Amino acid sequence: MRDVILRFLSQIPAPVWFALGVFALWCLHGPLDDLVAIARGRIPTPSDLRKAGKTKEWKKASAEHVPVVSGSRASMASDPHARLLAPSFPNALCNDNPVNVLEVASVEDTRKMLEDSWGIMNRADLVTRIYRLLCGDHSKGYAALRSRCADPEWVERVLEDLDKTVDKSTMDVEMCWRIHRFLNNDRGIQDVEFAAWDLMRAAMLTRSGFALGWLSEDEAWDTLALINHALQMHYSSWDEAWEAYRLGRWLWAAEGPEEEAADDMHDRARGAYLLGKRGLWKSLPWDAPIPESRFLLLDAVAATGRLQVLSVSNWRKASAWERELDAQARWRTPLAMGGKPIVH
């Protein structure tokens, strides 16, 4: 039998053998590619993206977001500092920053990012910007725009005015995109609570401030505790918070289809590293106890004279988080209602 098989195989033409070899390599390409990705700490290409011919795009996005961990991944589960840093993970993945320590990969790159993207040049700028994010800097604006979009007359008037603008600015174009997204309820944007978009970026700025020496270590951890507390007041899970952050960023970007597709791939890769099978957030319980904040950030902002308090009408319609933050601000603002919380 053995001789018969060998005689049969010897009669197969070389071109056929070559074709069979190519076919075998093609069949093994996916599994081998996945093994290489895993060995390099990346996530294999999802089957839907492979079928859609998006393997190259996924490889690029995946490679740009590989987590950098100081020490072992296993130790993060019991590390209280890793839990406090968790809201900063999305940004850390984009900048090769270690996810579980306060330090950043490049202090100079961080300084440039703060200057160019945020206009932050010093400690006063930094603490004020973090405070404004905690107060809902962008999220309140998006919620207000969503409410205005419920008024057909307002929408018609604004879109007509924008259409008449000859030299449209980037802000004009972005406003048009945002209005249409609300009108069409794209991605369920009508029901999104946008706070995570502000709070997770506040965590990033907190880390950046420590890296540049504008926040002490005590202030940084205390502010991260405050941010985690705020997130827990707004959301019930990492999945919910991530979805809110992702959609907040999508609304902020407000770009055309091509750019939107690239951003979606970018965030899908980040989401996979955060919430995938071995995601960073999977080992960090959402409802883990968080140290009680001393609101040291508000002390720093008070020193700049930039604390703000809610009016009586705004206090009445404020969320529980907004009221808590406002009460702490009032104790630090001597001229605001005698420095005491409003009592109703």
Rank of each mutant, 00 (worst) to 15 (best):
R2C: 08
R2K: 07
I12R: 07
A14Y: 09
P15I: 08
F18P: 01
L20C: 12
L25R: 03
W26M: 00
D33V: 02
D33L: 07
A39W: 14
R42M: 15
P46K: 07
P46V: 08
S47H: 11
D48T: 13
L49A: 06
E57Q: 11
P67C: 09
S72Q: 05
R73G: 06
R73M: 14
P80V: 05
A92S: 11
D96I: 03
V104H: 00
A105C: 03
V107Y: 01
T110I: 08
L114I: 03
S117Q: 12
S117Y: 09
W118S: 00
N122C: 14
R129F: 10
A144M: 05
A144R: 12
S147T: 15
W154P: 02
R157C: 10
V158D: 06
L159W: 04
D163T: 12
T165K: 15
T170G: 15
V173K: 09
M175D: 08
L183H: 04
G188M: 04
G188E: 03
Q190D: 14
V192D: 09
E193F: 04
E193G: 01
F194I: 01
A196D: 00
W197Q: 02
M204D: 06
L205G: 08
L205P: 07
S208F: 00
G209A: 01
W214I: 04
A220Y: 01
L226F: 03
H229W: 06
Y235H: 05
A244G: 03
L251P: 00
E255R: 09
G256D: 09
E258W: 08
D264F: 08
R268G: 15
L284V: 11
P289R: 11
F295L: 06
A300P: 02
A303W: 02
T304V: 06
R306I: 00
Q308E: 15
S313V: 06
N314H: 13
R316W: 07
R316D: 14
A329N: 15
T333S: 15
T333A: 12
G338A: 08
K340G: 07
P341T: 13
P341G: 12
